[in-house]
Design a binder for these strands. Sequence first.
RNA 1: GGGCGUGUAGCUCAGUCGGUUAGAGCGCGUCCCUGAUAAGGACGAGGUCACUGGUUCGAUUCCAGUCACGCCCA
Length: 1050
Amino acid sequence: MYEPVSGKTDFNAMDEGVLEFWREADIFRKSLEQTKNRDEFVFYDGPPFATGLPHYGHLLAGTIKDIIPRYQTMRGHHIQRRFGWDCHGLPIEALAQDALGVSGAHAISELGVDKFNEQCRSMVSKYVAEWRRTVTRMGRWVDFDNDYKTLDKNFMESVWWVFKELWRKGRVYKSYRIMPYSWKLNTPLSNFEAGSNYKDVQDPTVTVRVKLTEGAPAEWGEAYALIWTTTPWTLPENQAICAGPDICYVAVRDSEDGCVYVMAEARLESVYKNGGYTVVGKCKGSELLGWRYEPIFPYFSGLSNCFRILNGDFVTVTDGTGLVHMAPAYGEDDFNACRAAGITELADGLDWDCRFTDSVPDFKGQFCKDADKAIIRRLKEEGKLVHQGTIVHSYPFCDRTDTPLIYRAIDAWYVKVEDLRDKLSANNATVSWMPEYVGEKRFANWLREAKDWNISRNRFWGSCIPLWINEKDPSDIICVGSVAELEELSGEKVEDLHKHYVDKILIRRDGKTYRRTPEVLDCWFESGSMPYAQQHYPFENAEKFRKGFPANFIAEGLDQTRGWFYTLLVLSTILFDKAPYRNVVVNGLVLAEDGKKMSKRLKNYPDPMHVITTYGADALRLYMINSAVVRAENLRFSETGVRQILRDLLIPWWNAYSFFVTYANVDKWHEDALVAPDSSNELDRWIVSSLETLISDVTSSMDRYDLQRSVRPFVDFVDNLTNWYIRRSRRRFWKSQNDGDKADAYRTLRYVLVQLCKVAAPFTPFISESIYRNLRGSDMPESVHLCEFPQPNSAARDSLLERQMQLAQTAVNLGHSLRKQKDLKVRQPLNRAVIASSSEDTLSAVRLMGSVIAEELNVKNVEFASDESRFVSLSAKANFKSLGSRLGKRMKLASNAIAALPAESLVALQSGKSIDIDIGDGEGAVQISLEDVQIIRMEKEGMPVANEGDVTVALETALTQDLILEGIAREFVSKVQVMRKDAEFDVARRIKLCVAGDPECVEAIEKHRDYVCAETLCVCLNIVPESDLPSGTPEMDLNGHRGFAVVAGV
RNA sequence: GGGCGUGUAGCUCAGUCGGUUAGAGCGCGUCCCUGAUAAGGACGAGGUCACUGGUUCGAUUCCAGUCACGCCCA
């Protein structure tokens, strides 16, 4: 006996039962144990931030990260799956700030970094339990107990090792970068943070003249460049002027003061609104390059390389003068352009509160923006101010304090990457990406323009930059690469590597004192170090690491192009000059059904747990995998889509299984060993062959990491299994004698169901397990996930048989369509169907399917004919594909000529002859053969026909009295079956029938008495006068005839 | 502004290495079937394959440009 199965299953309960089994029988551990001596297939799991609950993006990535390892395990590999957590960085700091009620770097320092960091540490595992629950519920097998955390001392120590390797190779340097800076919080913000609070503000604008000293033609006399800015306070720090190389500039002589002014031609009219000038010269910005001018303010006039005109592509003529004032300490374009021009020393006159320092004595102590007025006044006094106004524009503000942000140069640590571009590209070329374009275009382009990587953060909770700097000489730096090294250098015991511990540790050497640089590392540096740090390499596991590097496979979202994919590659390229991964599956974004981002606030998506418990995890997994989201495209998440996959695949599959169990139990059929069936029945051979095709398709797609294409063939297979194999085989299971054919049917169906479980196990681990557990033999593994993946066996495939069945299905569909057209229900038997095809191959193939077609179409005889012309008239149409390339411009005429071909020509073509046709352009005859035309079939008078490809089906629709009576009998059986069902009789329950009706009805039932009794399991059929029926017996409509039946169980 | 991707039926998506009838599922309408099935089948309505040009005998497909959307970057 198999465990009885209900046709209506509760997928949630099924899932929970399977989870319980996995837990109790410890199946995941067993699967690892079982494969421990096999080849290692290495998977790296990218660590998520544990600062929120998992969303669909995580579920999707988790599903991909489950399917591939499950598949590879079944293919005989050993695969460690360690979960990882990204524990550092701003997300967790933000949670801690909220919890402590503090905000900003100042406040944190006041509170104490130790307090703050311990708060962060205590909150890291806040969501861990919830993650574990959800990930597990989705069916993902991953090791949570042996997970890695970026805050572990060992992990952090390996990060130091990585850092020191970079340092040793001369890859780490300190430099400036322009960042949004909150003067109220005394901290730089990330660009992301800066983008969240823009406001419209009114700022001053000034146009200033700058005296040219070199470059301008002497005949101009006194000449000035005109510059424009909305930040007058940056003028004291001016170091250069920038012109657009391709912008057209003019020099005009002012008719009032007689001086010459240079500006962009496009801006001339807005500067000189009322004329009053004469043009004395024109040139491109590239010609202004290198001209020199007198510093506007004297404070930084000693700096070298400054006070020149530079060129830059970012210059526009939408406002200002087309000549841009450059204060490289306060603007990114300025900074980059000046650095490119060899200006290395920055004029920075502000302290950490953004007040002017001693270096700008005239404005000392004033907050920079407040100094605007005084600066403008000074410019006016000195005759440098040409125009003054105001502008309203949108400007970023600090999110927390609502004060305007100041863009300024901040000291930061960088990893040199720019000179590695070729190596990065070469290493990337060894990686196989799914989809290809992400690696070959998107990522490759990014690598080609890779910029040096800012790895320092002026924050608190993270891995520390392990650099100790001489208090007296900032160029004297010690890089520490391990705990032992630090202990030795400092003589102190190092318990923890977080900032509040290591900042207290000083190194004293040769009478000098070294203090740690205060920054922490970018958390991308940590996740990029994951291949080494998760193993505590090189301090431990050196051999294990070497075997497991690079990874066979990683999977993350498209948004990681610049994230994890990148940092992994940069670090491994520097350390080992190798790509750290061989295969990458990139998934797209999961959007809400409306195409917008999923938003908790808008509630535009269903809760993941609700979806899982309603439809089961398998349905959700399949829904996501069966979409292009596994090929980096976006998915609009639709609950209906999840329900759909349940209906299309999981329910039919379950029903096939429930069918098997129900009837096997009724028949007491049971076999322990699972053997490949050796049935001669064509349906059996066909479904086994289809199964082999499925195995082969799935295997080849999975080996290419093409998940979407791996899922697709399942839908077809299950459709064939339920709607053709089982439907066609039903009577083999129902018949009362237990003969060899019946045993073949059971054996085949069980075999197919069990093999299907194995093939589907990586995708739908729950339903596969559930079905497998009930059907397996006693010597088979206790879990489907401990089985081997079925080997593709081409010997078991019979492509001719698959083609035959395909043709039979086509013929049946055509016949059904004819019945529909002629309004003849399938229950009405017909005398004859004719299958015609001019192709001998097709005809001989479909000929073998005659009985199948006859039964499905409910016709007494199926005939085959090679001469279609009995049923259809033929005409032809040109095959543009074959002729077009040959004929070119003559194609149009040829198409007309072919449409006009007489019947004899078509018969000649069909018999395989080539014919010459004259297409009337005087260029000579065109020789055509059957491939060059497409035969069109039109119905002739007589029998209705339908056609698809080279198969034509004709149906004899005339009804004889015999056929009509049989139709009535079948209709009657159908009605009685409904009554049985309504009465909830068991399928094997015998009944008694009391029947009445009009004369035809009685005649029909009388004539087909045996058939009616057999079909309805009726042991006693009495035909009585209508008047003997119990009152209220409902009348049946039997194809227009009156009938009555009273059903009673025996 | 740049890189990459996407745009096909009311919806979710296939497909087309250039070929004259562009498919599936859902939804809708009509009907059929039901002795496993919250099912299944047939038929029908529904498409200027985002737009504009170009190449070609022929473009939804190739090329260029435009527009819209998305991701990343600036």
